[in-house]
Design a protein around this nucleic acid. Sequence first.
DNA 1: TATTAGCTGCGACAATTGTCGCAAATTTTG
DNA 2: CAAAATTTGCGACAATTGTCGCAGCTAATA
Lengths: 135, 135
Amino acid sequence: MHQPTAPELEILKLLWLKQPLTARELHDELAPVLGWGYSSTRKTLERMGAKGFIACSIHCNKNTYTALLDKMPTLAAYVQDFANRVFEINGPLPVAMFANSKLVNASEIADLELLLQKLAQESAADPQAAASKDN
Amino acid sequence: MHQPTAPELEILKLLWLKQPLTARELHDELAPVLGWGYSSTRKTLERMGAKGFIACSIHCNKNTYTALLDKMPTLAAYVQDFANRVFEINGPLPVAMFANSKLVNASEIADLELLLQKLAQESAADPQAAASKDN
DNA sequence: TATTAGCTGCGACAATTGTCGCAAATTTTG
DNA sequence: CAAAATTTGCGACAATTGTCGCAGCTAATA
């Protein structure tokens, strides 16, 4: 299973802020940024559902979406992948870089640090499996 | 212009180490890592040429490839994109994270810091000019 | 020089992603 | 309740990427 694509990540970020949301609500937030038509938003949601990134359920007679991916593990996977793939860093990653993020607070950064240590250990212990796990 | 894809970046990294290289030389390094057939390597090179990432020229009666993208600006673009897209960081980015990289040395990290400052300034001065010019 | 081994250009095919459009079902409203 | 506005489920199409295969050309060699 790969990582969410860029637009998929945007949707997840909205859901991590507030859940559940309808397609229309998500679209109204996304449209200005991505310049999408409503159909594009819905199709992306459909595909995310098929991939197990989000779940669709009925609330108040409407389809609403909730994230199935947890925020920090998902972000940690991005960081790990990026550091490995682009910079070939394999040891534990410093998290100072993320202090300025609008997306995560101090406690989440602490979580991130733990998650990254775990990921680094895994890929050190078993490089092949760790590398191909998300591929 | 998009960023190089993951395999394309691997090729660029090899070229940044040593240039020029033939398709065969690149392939022999990449095959174990990517599990590619020779044709896949060559097709990827062809596409990278079409995108202007690399140039193909004749040395010793053989097609050889050289990178047209510079290493540090390319890496800086990755960092900037990643920080913005995934973590919504817009201020200047700390580069401490990259100290452990096998790919860059101290002086290159210094370059990176400058490049990132520049990118951050640009995107601060001109946030999404193309998308929303009516505000 | 006739083979042969490797290189080149290109075409091809499947999977993914970006991006709709449409017709049917449902909900809202006059 | 009937008409209008939304919502939904799906199908579609183009561009990109991963990944070859093939037929022809070239260079090395017996």
